[in-house]
Nucleic acid binder design. Structure first.
Length: 918
RNA sequence: GCAGGAAUGGUGGAAUGGUAGACACGGGGGACUUAAAAUCCCCUGGCCUUUGCGGGCUGUGUGGGUUCGAGUCCCAUUUCCUGUACCA
């Protein structure tokens, strides 16, 4: 055989896989299915860097392995093609986002193809493809036409809710709602169609609501909470402010209990489940009514500390609360107005940066229902309108936020826990013995906090002052974006009221526009589309759907991507069911992974999918960071000093392209050619070399630390890239990319190639068989545990051992080819065919190890004295504890350490160790 | 602040409570070669000791604990990463 030529081998087998449709998948009812999915990428203009394929390689290894084990593996890939960058680019250049997106997709595809993935490309989906987004729009229509029945805990058709309203009004209605509404049947029936439709928005799962949104003036759009970071837009870094707008929303909050409970059965990492639990944010507490003095009004509050009611010294309303208007006394009106104005104009960022305590007195008082005391009602922006009831009872002694407010405005602070010192700070811990808590009907003194909470809850429910309540932090998802590049809503407006289009109108195609900017009167770009009307002339919704719309159910579409009648056929859904293994970044923990679960549960409620959860097992691959190299220029010159000598000069570090640095040694000629201003650079070297410094940073063009997988594939081959990415460390772990070290993996493949070239037909020795079966066992177990770095190490050990043998058998090479096929499929395929097999090595059988082959004649025991390692002995395999003990004590080496003493105890752990306690 | 995770040689990283540092990079030495590349072999945590073979001690962020035995389990603590943040 010729030398190992990766370029020739890899292009040849990639062609073979394409020509023979090796990875095309179909339903095979006689075989068990396994669905391996990667989070599909957003095709950005920068192309893939070497960090992106990490997860894809891991999942590819796993799916090829499962396939060799006899599973019918679904392993698709596609593109999350809607997104802001393409639109931003379109605004700047006038180029249609579709064009940019398609160009980027093509680039991604060619990069992916070079790495040798086993994707079934015939199932590719693109979220911006009308044949795909038809089903995104369709799902939205279903959500519009359903409400959530809180008693049954599932979505029901809105027609059932209407029937209920017609008969009973809101009496006995159990529906997740935006706000509490009370209606009689007569009132409902007397409403106009317009009024009824408006009222129904209170219950629909896809509904319009007035919501406080993160408005980004620069981007001209509303952003989701997870698109905002520290008051700035994640994309672009523009300031974000609060604004009340009528928006499409999804009633995700209705599913909060199920989203929480069902987490328990998922094979996800604990940290990710915990993140979702926190995000859903269940808290058990009580809702309690505080009557307002000299008024019929009652303030409802939510608290988890019912035990602290006797320490309530004031109440606080969120600035957005409607009670502010109702309660403010004439004397305080101006002050309150001024405060509301101030708060409104603060951006989210300003609120976060300046944590000053602010607030204003409304002039009104409430009555503490347990103590009967009068307490002032204040307004402050530290109370959130979106959580609980938008009003709180303030217990400054035991809540740090209430405490600083009380200090600032000189409000009383009453400690309620024995021994709690509240002179400097509040005592927030939920522990201790309650004191100062005795009213006319209720005495909590002497109880623990826990007991006091229970007793108070019981008391208030009995007296009708309040009720036990569970609150969730999870908020409804805002579903409108004032953007062009997204799915249009199949919605038109008649008399200002939203109506769904007929399903036959789907897909509702995204129209052409003259410019991708908002219109002069601040309407979204779709306001520029000509004839954006129904045939009857009604205007169509101008907003488009957000990014998560298209990515919420794509895993279902892969099951049946070309179906024009349904999102997924019954047959395909029942066969593929759910994703067995989902691989992707942890950054989607609170976005995509919540929305997808919600979306799936909704479809499950409608009986359209059979699995209540979309992703059974989830692995978060770590992020690959960049490793930036630095050169050190003497200030004001063009002379560069090697890293070891920089102390002797006044230098400044400059980032240098990592592609002209190898093992931190600079290629000086390449450096001079890199940028014109370095053409006449001079160097001060150490040991004849220029040594660069390094730092770990994000991989990005501006840091000159981007490594393109294409270059690695060109130089070392896809098999080397795949093995090396796995060899770098555990898949879940974040780590900097460092090309140093890739030679080791490449060397291993060349060694393997040489061994293969020298294979013989002779029967293999027991020793050789043992090497192979040790490897089979190790690799099989490691793949199951997603421990790919140690499997690569095992391959290297095996090759080193095999290379020491005089010859290696065909049988071993046959096994080796099958074992390494998931990791390095090209070289494996080459071996497989050299060995005279037909078909792809991916369809070969995964080798099984024989315990028999791994057996030893003797067992080696390390012998310790008092836990300190002393010597080794060998005993025949199968010796029992007593035999081992006798052998150890009889061993001449033992004498020296025994020093004539009799051991107190001899501990023999079969197969592991012997410890002698003196 | 809260939640989750991590800390092991010059570097990336291995170690079901049982000989810490597998494997690889880098480094050092050697073989082959006119030379270089490639390849192959040996050494490579630290300290001490021995002419040599070797031997000893120490060592997994820090301090305690459990255990015959701890990188691993428990308690405390420091630092770093990731997520989240006025959630009552």
């Amino acid at each position: 055989m010729a030398d190992y030529n990766h370029n020739d081998i890899e292009s040849r087998w990639q062609q073979y896989w394409r020509d023979n449709g090796v990875f095309k998948t179909e339903i095979k009812k006689d075989r068990p299915k396994y669905y391996v999915l990667d989070m599909f990428p957003y095709p950005s203009g920068a192309g893939l860097h070497v960090g992106h394929p990490l997860g894809y390689i891991a999942s590819d290894i796993y799916s090829r392995y499962k396939r060799q084990q006899g599973f019918n593996v679904l392993h698709p890939m596609g593109y999350d093609a809607y997104g802001l960058p393409a639109e931003q680019y379109a605004i700047q250049t006038g180029q249609h986002p579709e064009k940019t997106t398609n160009a980027n997709i093509e680039r991604y595809r060619s990069q992916l193809d070079k790495i040798g993935f086993s994707f079934d490309w015939s199932r590719e989906v693109r979220t911006c493809d009308p044949k795909y987004y038809k089903w995104t729009q369709w799902a939205f229509m279903q959500m519009f036409n359903h409400y959530y029945d809180t008693k049954l805990g599932k979505a029901r058709p809105i027609s059932e809710l209407i029937a209920h309203l017609e008969k009973h009004g809101t009496e006995g209605l159990n529906a997740a709602e935006t706000k509490e509404i009370t209606l009689t049947a007569d009132q409902w029936n007397a409403m106009t169609e317009k009024e009824q439709r408006e009222t129904l928005m209170n219950w629909r799962i896809a509904f319009q609501g007035e919501t406080m949104v993160n408005w980004c003036p620069e981007l001209g759009t509303v952003l989701a909470n997870d698109e905002v970071s520290e008051g700035l837009s994640v994309r672009g870094g523009f300031p974000v402010e609060q604004k009340l707008m009528r928006q499409w929303c999804l009633r995700v909050s209705a599913y909060a209990p199920r989203l929480l409970d069902d987490l328990n059965d998922l094979a996800w990492s604990d940290s990710l489940k915990e993140t979702q639990r926190n995000w859903i944010g269940r808290s058990e507490g009580a809702e309690m009514k505080f009557p307002v003095k000299d008024s019929d009004l009652e303030l409802e509050i939510f608290t988890t500390r019912a035990d602290t009611v006797f320490g309530v010294t004031f109440m606080v309303l969120a600035p957005e609360s409607e009670y502010v208007r109702l309660l403010t006394t004439p004397a305080q009106k101006d002050a309150v107005e001024a405060y509301l104005n101030e708060v409104k104009h603060k951006t989210e960022r300003e609120r976060q940066i300046d944590k000053k305590v602010t607030g204003v007195f409304t002039g009104a008082y409430a009555i503490n229902p347990l103590s009967g005391k009068e307490i002032p009602i204040w307004v402050s922006d530290y109370v959130l309108a979106g959580y609980g009831t938008g009003a709180i009872m303030a217990v400054p002694a035991h809540d740090s936020r209430d405490y600083s407010f009380a200090k600032k405005f000189n409000l009383p602070i009453i400690p309620l826990i024995e021994g709690a010192d509240v002179s400097e700070e509040s005592f927030d811990a939920k522990e201790g013995i309650v004191c100062n808590s005795c009213g006319p009907d209720l005495d909590l003194n002497g109880l623990t906090v826990k007991e006091a909470i229970a007793k108070t809850k019981k008391h208030i429910s009995e007296k009708g002052i309040g009720r036990v309540k569970v609150n969730y932090r999870l908020r409804d998802a805002i579903f409108s974006r004032q953007r062009y590049w997204g799915e249009p809503f199949p919605v038109y407006y008649k008399d200002g009221i939203a109506y769904l289009m007929d399903e036959s109108a789907l897909p509702l195609l995204l129209p052409e526009v003259s410019s991708y900017l908002p219109t002069a009167d601040g309407e979204p770009p779709l306001g520029r589309a000509e004839n954006w009307k129904t045939p009857e002339g009604y205007p169509i919704e101008l907003c488009t759907m957000p990014g998560f719309a298209g990515s919420s159910a794509y895993y279902l579409r892969y099951m049946d991507p070309h179906n024009e009648e349904a999102l997924v056929s019954k047959e395909a859904d029942e066969y593929w069911r759910d994703v067995d293994l989902y691989v992707g970044g942890a950054e989607h923990a609170t976005g995509h992974l919540i929305y997808s679960r919600f979306w799936n549960k909704f479809l499950y409620d409608l009986g359209l999918v059979v699995s209540p959860e979309p992703f059974k097992k989830l692995v978060n691959q770590g992020m690959i960071q960049g490793r930036t190299n630095f050169v050190y220029r003497i200030k004001g010159t063009n002379t560069f000093v090697s890293k070891g000598l920089i102390d002797k000069y006044d230098t400044m570090p400059i980032r240098v392209d990592v592609n002209i640095v190898s093992n931190d040694i600079l290629d000086q000629d390449a450096f001079k050619a890199w940028r014109p201003d370095f053409a006449d650079a001079e160097f001060i070297l150490e040991d004849g070399k220029y040594v660069c410094g390094y730092a770990v940073e994000k991989m990005s063009k501006s840091m000159f630390n981007v490594v393109n997988p294409d270059d690695i594939v060109e130089k070392y081959g896809a098999d080397t890239l795949r093995l090396y990415e796995m060899f770098l460390g555990p898949v879940e772990q974040s780590k900097p990319w460092d090309t140093n070290g890739i030679d080791g993996v490449n060397r291993f493949l060349r060694k393997l190639w040489n061994i293969f070239s020298k294979r013989t037909d002779a029967e293999r020795s027991a020793q050789e068989k043992k090497i192979m079966h040790t490897l089979i066992k190790k690799v099989s177990q490691d793949i199951e545990n997603f421990s790919f770095n140690t499997s690569v190490a095992a391959f290297m050990i095996a090759v080193n051992e095999l290379s020491k043998l005089p010859s290696v058998s065909v049988e071993s090479m046959d096994e080796f080819a099958r074992l390494i096929a998931p990791f390095a499929p090209h070289i494996a395929e080459e071996f497989w065919h050299e060995l005279g097999h037909d078909g792809s090595v991916s369809d070969s059988e995964w080798p099984k190890w024989e315990e028999e082959a791994l057996k030893e004649d003797t067992v080696k025991y390390p012998v310790q004295f008092n836990g300190k390692m002393r010597f080794n002995i060998e005993v025949p395999a199968g010796s029992d504890k007593a035999a081992v003990e006798t052998a150890v004590l009889a061993d001449p080496a033992a004498e020296k350490w025994l020093e004539g003493k009799t051991p107190k105890k001899v501990i023999v752990v079969p197969g592991r160790i012997v410890n002698i306690v003196l």
